[in-house]
């Protein structure tokens, strides 16, 4: 029987599970906005992030902070190498969209196969046990993982918001996203902006993979076949270029998925995502529009770009 307790539990579980989806969606959306690349290679970066964390935690037995730093360094290295030695090369060659698409998807597959070769095809977790202490509040089970995940995601989103809207480099990112040629005329380095955005994405990805790996086991193919698809749907739902809305869309999708268990058998839940991706692209290719008051996290990009260009001109 459906009770308020069950509904509350589904809401909470969906919300907590949305944390890593939110991070992946924001990372994907940021690279799409600034670097202007549908970065399907993000799944490959996610694989590298996860397995570097796995080596640090399980093989070397490092404590939390050094392990996270190691994972972050590996992820940053892979991300920056992708930008410098792949995306930049294709941009300079004026390569077709298809070339970029094939490269990004094949890079992800390469990462999956490489990790299967090194670590095997079995799912692996970052800690030997995934059991977290659970507290009951008003009949709703809240695990310490839930609280940690929500706190980490909230802090990262706040920092990203402050970085983009309150720092000069953040404004440079928006300027490059709006018009890279005009930004360069004003002395903003396009290449540096690409590097910064993909580095921020690397931080979000590493954090997301840590959250995922402390809650569930990961197959090497999971990022490509599941996690990335979710990020892509959220990005499209939010409308291209709306970084924070992509995060909100990811939360909404996670909640839909959590509540869908009431009407759809669990084995059909993934189908919901595939139907959504198809329907959204065909009928809402520009995403859903929220009333202006509700989209307050997104500042009109033209104004930000103008501020950035003025800052830069003053340098």
């Amino acid at each position: 029987m459906l009770t308020w307790g069950i509904l509350g539990q589904l809401l909470w579980t969906g919300f907590a599970a949305a944390t890593y989806y939110c991070l992946f969606a924001v990372a994907f959306s940021l690279v799409l906005k600034v670097n202007k690349i549908w970065n399907f290679a993000q799944a490959g970066v996610m694989v590298f992030a996860y397995y570097s964390l796995l080596v640090a935690f399980r093989h070397w037995g490092l404590p939390l902070v050094p392990a996270l730093v190691f994972g972050l360094l590996v992820t940053l290295g892979v991300s920056l190498a992708l930008e410098r030695y792949a995306f930049m090369v294709f941009r300079d060659r004026n390569s077709s969209i298809l070339t970029l698409f094939i490269f990004t998807i094949v890079f992800s597959e390469f990462s999956v196969y490489l990790m299967e070769l090194v670590f095997g095809t079995e799912p692996q977790t970052l800690y030997p046990s995934l059991l977290w202490p659970v507290d009951l509040y008003a009949g709703i089970a809240i695990s310490h993982w839930d609280l940690m995940a929500i706190a980490v995601t909230a802090v990262l989103m706040l920092l990203l918001y402050l970085f983009i809207h309150r720092t000069r480099y953040g404004r440079y990112l928006i300027a490059v996203a709006d018009n890279e040629n005009l930004a360069e005329i004003y002395g903003i380095s396009r290449k540096r902006a690409y590097g910064v955005s993909i580095s921020i994405a690397a931080v979000l990805i590493t954090s997301g993979m840590y959250l995922f790996g402390t809650k569930a086991a990961l197959f090497p193919s999971t990022p490509l076949q599941h996690l990335l698809i979710f990020a892509v749907i959220a990005t499209i739902l939010a409308g291209i270029g709306n970084i924070f809305r992509a995060g909100i869309a990811a939360v909404a999708l996670s909640l839909i998925q959590a509540f869908s268990i009431l009407v759809i058998a669990s084995k059909w839940q993934a189908l919901l995502a595939y139907i959504l991706i198809f329907v959204v692209i065909i009928f809402f290719p520009r995403g859903f529009s929220l009333p202006r008051k509700l989209s307050g996290l997104v500042r009109p990009s033209g104004r930000s770009a103008a501020v950035a260009l003025t800052d830069s001109a003053g340098d």
Partner: peptide
Amino acid sequence: LRVSGDYLVIASIGFQLGILHV
């Protein structure tokens, strides 16, 4: 007929994975 480029790639992935899931 409605979308092209990257959008068509993603729509086709959704179509493929959806049918495969069924």
